[in-house]
Nucleic acid binder design. Structure first.
Lengths: 217, 217
DNA sequence: CCTACCGATCGGTAGG
DNA sequence: CCTACCGATCGGTAGG
């Protein structure tokens, strides 16, 4: 009657696969997340591993979903207690920088590695990545709008512009750490964020479209 | 006496391989630059292709060297005629944005795709990438110093900080174009550069380390 | 969860 | 530049 392995054991194995797979993907990319290598690293057979997901693609999707959970726990949750608007934005960026600087994943942020790997492809993996970036975009943009509404950021601030620049800071930081091992970049990222999200409030120069350029949306 | 194919013909074939290989690498990454696929696309045999380079790694290195030549022609050369310092920096950034927006490579800037693919690996390809980024860093940093010296940028500007942030703008732009097909990001990149490299000169707020942070070198 | 296997593709070599 | 081939590894399946 009882199976050789309980459902709970099977679920735990599945967790281990995703965890290890995500670490592997952060280093080797979602394509380098090969079933054979992952199975060998876990001490199980390829078919045993594949039984949990069916296809490599399903494993890739599961790894991305898990990455989102961890990113949320590392970057959003620590900031959730801060006051809405500018304080929360600053807390998010601080946690974001810390997440990159501490090397939560051995190969850096898996979303960064994955996006530049997958952007030339098509299919469900790319689509999921797009949706995940969009979701994070919306969250940040909404928080910027709140900051503008409650006076934390100057009127005239372009939310999409600010989010675009914050992304840049984080990608540049990820790059500096991963390619050059340059820990001084952490300080630079903090400096850049401080200038984008000034403490001083409404008297600071607003982040808005350049005069002459047509406003974005 | 005369070989079946002249040295000139062989050299032209080599050029075609590198050209096509670089396009392929910008989409699939330097690892996805497989000999079989590239050979099939060019209508030659795998061994015929490999004869020009010996190993896949040598092909990858040749592709990266070629990428640097093209990047230089696209981004540095158009700006070389501008006055040293701030005008040249602005011209470089304009050309850089244009290079990304025009889609000179089908998969975006090959240095961006490659750096996030290779940063978890080791070996000559990663080392070359590091050297290429360092060389470009030095060039930009020197130009920033010139701008500070001749009054184009405010005293107290931290060159490494400014270069760090310019990289971020370009990576964010590459990401927005390649993953989201978001052409509005081009305007945002221009806006960000305009704020980092102000027209107004010495009265603008300097890009320097945040107070409290130790100055970066 | 396993062993045993499939066809396809990988980088690379031998020999011409 | 070619054909013909190598061992290794890929994602995945059959059958238990």
């Amino acid at each position: 009657m009882s199976p050789r392995h309980s459902a709970a054991e099977a679920a735990r194995t599945r967790e281990r696969i995703i965890e290890r797979g995500l670490d592997l993907a952060s280093v080797e990319g979602l394509e380098g997340l090969t079933i054979g290598r992952l199975a060998a690293g876990l001490g199980i057979s390829k078919s045993g591993l594949l039984g949990h997901f069916g296809t490599k693609q399903a494993l890739q999707l599961a790894a991305l979903e898990r990455a989102a959970v961890i990113f949320n726990a590392e970057v959003w949750r620590p900031a959730a207690g801060a006051a809405p608007g500018l304080p929360r934005l600053r807390a998010v960026c601080e946690a974001w920088i810390s997440y990159l600087a501490r090397g939560v994943f051995p190969g850096g942020c898996p979303f960064v590695s994955s996006t530049f790997e997958q952007d030339g492809r098509s299919g469900p993996v790319r689509v999921l990545l797009q949706r995940q970036f969009h979701a994070w975009n919306r969250r940040l943009t909404a928080e910027v709008r709140t900051a503008v509404a409650n006076g934390g950021l100057p009127r005239g601030t372009d939310p999409a512009q600010l989010v675009f620049e914050l992304y840049g800071v984080m990608m540049s930081l990820n790059h500096a750490i991963q390619l050059h091992g340059d820990d001084a970049a952490t300080t630079r990222a903090t400096t850049a964020v401080t200038r984008l999200l000034p403490r001083e409030g409404p008297t600071a120069r607003p982040v808005r479209p350049a005069s002459g350029g047509k406003p974005a949306r």
